[in-house]
Design a protein around this nucleic acid. Sequence first.
DNA 1: AGTATTCATGCAATCGATTGCGCAACTTTC
DNA 2: GAAAGTTGCGCAATCGATTGCATGAATACT
Lengths: 342, 342
Amino acid sequence: MNRPVTLKDIARETGVHVSTVSRALDPNARTSLTREVVERIRTTAERMGYRPNRLASGLRTKRTMSIGLMIPDIENTLFPPIVRGAESVLEPAGYTSIIVNTDSDRKRETKLVDVLLERGVDGIIHAAPYRSDPRMIEVARRGLPMVTVNRQIENCDIPAVVNDDPGGIAMMLRYLHENGHRRIAHIAGPKNLSTGRARIEAFRATAQELHLDLPDEALVVSDYFDEQEGRRCTMQLLDSGAEFTAILCANDRLALGAFDALRRRGLSCPEDVSVTGYNGIPFLDLIPPGLTTIQIPQFDIGRIGAELLIKMMADPDVTIPRTTILPVKLVERGSVKHIDPA
Amino acid sequence: MNRPVTLKDIARETGVHVSTVSRALDPNARTSLTREVVERIRTTAERMGYRPNRLASGLRTKRTMSIGLMIPDIENTLFPPIVRGAESVLEPAGYTSIIVNTDSDRKRETKLVDVLLERGVDGIIHAAPYRSDPRMIEVARRGLPMVTVNRQIENCDIPAVVNDDPGGIAMMLRYLHENGHRRIAHIAGPKNLSTGRARIEAFRATAQELHLDLPDEALVVSDYFDEQEGRRCTMQLLDSGAEFTAILCANDRLALGAFDALRRRGLSCPEDVSVTGYNGIPFLDLIPPGLTTIQIPQFDIGRIGAELLIKMMADPDVTIPRTTILPVKLVERGSVKHIDPA
DNA sequence: AGTATTCATGCAATCGATTGCGCAACTTTC
DNA sequence: GAAAGTTGCGCAATCGATTGCATGAATACT
């Protein structure tokens, strides 16, 4: 592989010192040089095909212009739009992101944080932390700019960009209520995730406001946000003897699992049971009967998270809101049936 | 942010020279040191929480232990499994990957290659190159290890890991034939992509083998591999006056678009027209009537691509097969109807 | 004209880790 | 016991870019 062109090469070619070349190529330092010298250096740099060595400059300046992006799993369709949202601001700003998949495994997460630290990332965006995460808090406290998006870590001051969970759940529950549903079951998300917790609390609060009866059997908590758990929890609801005309699921994948469980039990949605989801992942419109869900602004969550991070990296003392809550909207499809209140 | 621990710190602490510390921590060089010294250094390194600075070592060794992973769009569900397949071997090997989304835009692609080069990646995996791509060829020729996966660049010796396009298309066309279909339309992929081209050629060849009549109107070439194009091409087929009982689509997204177009025209699949896809992206089983498609081994494509790249990076002169072809399989769902041959 | 001031550029240290070479101390050999 | 060989570690250069300080030349000022 033929050696890349360095500042030294350009210096030799133009007959100036390497530091002059460095300054000529730096938009900030260029002021103190002769317009003519700058021009000469820039054109020969161009001609020689110079590409700065980010490693070297990063070593000296302690800024790598790269950030770590931690997600649970890129195959989970919730995350790619968040990633693109983040990159939509990082890339134009000259940042490069190192994406790591944690598989929601704490051991892996710890190891991956170390990997990011070794690579000298200038900041971290964590798209799916646990509610409690001492390691991340420690890293943030040591001074590494960090934001969480989609979920948040509790009892710390790491800025978070999240969707309006309470608002979205309340909206959905009211929607079911307006459509005549009175006995509504809930498949909640894992309790160790901020979204799981926020949604179940919102469900309880709104149910109370609406004077809905909420027997214990009508609420089942999942261990993971996935189809298999949705299936299992739905089966459990069905077997519990609880009576309900609708199931409000804490996310879309749980709802997809519910679809499947109902089908297996010979029940049809929405004829026998209405089902709702949360998040608004892709393809939902193509899967019958069409999942009525809460659409969260995935792209914007990523975008705004990255914007905040960039601010923090530029000025470590800047004040950032602890929580930025983005609005959601209800998208009506076919999985909810209008019924006469029992 | 408190300063990270460096070799120098450990050297001071243990009273040895920094070079000794470096050797003690390097599994390869450790042989020439006293077992006792190595032990002492390693424990204090551990105690002080030492993390090597990859920038510094990369600068010196010219190996960054990072690779570039170029994909068109992480939101396209075809690619995340490929990414995870690649990472399944890169991560354990100590490599970190920088993922960039090209949006299949040549300008962006050129810029992004430069970004990767500046970051000093040790190699590149390109998951969606154009058939012709002088820039990538040039970069590879300059000595940067590179493989393409999923698609390939023509007229060059960059190793490629692809699925068996001819085999898959032949398998599918035969399957339609066995199910009684004789007049079969084809929505082909873009001609500037190797997969688009390979599939249309395979379609033609197999059609001839089976003595199928293939009027010009029954073959339409899409501009992009997406739903919108699938819709447009299907409309065009419908309007052309061509008679057909089935449409073989060059990929799943085109097929999804075909589903939609048929529905809009009041036709039902598979009753009126059978439809088949290619790739086997997620959720297809949930979308009625269930797309019969060719499942390609996405994860393995990524995995094997990364394995080859690692070999190339370890030894630039190693011989790698120009093309590695992975087997595919047909997955039968509900979108093909068995009919009596006309 | 001589000195003060400004300006453009060079010098050299630095970031943290790696590595070829050399040297001192120790062991082996006859 | 001296020469030869081995072993364990230190020295210093190096990777490429950045940057505070120094320096020499040009300009301004009295």
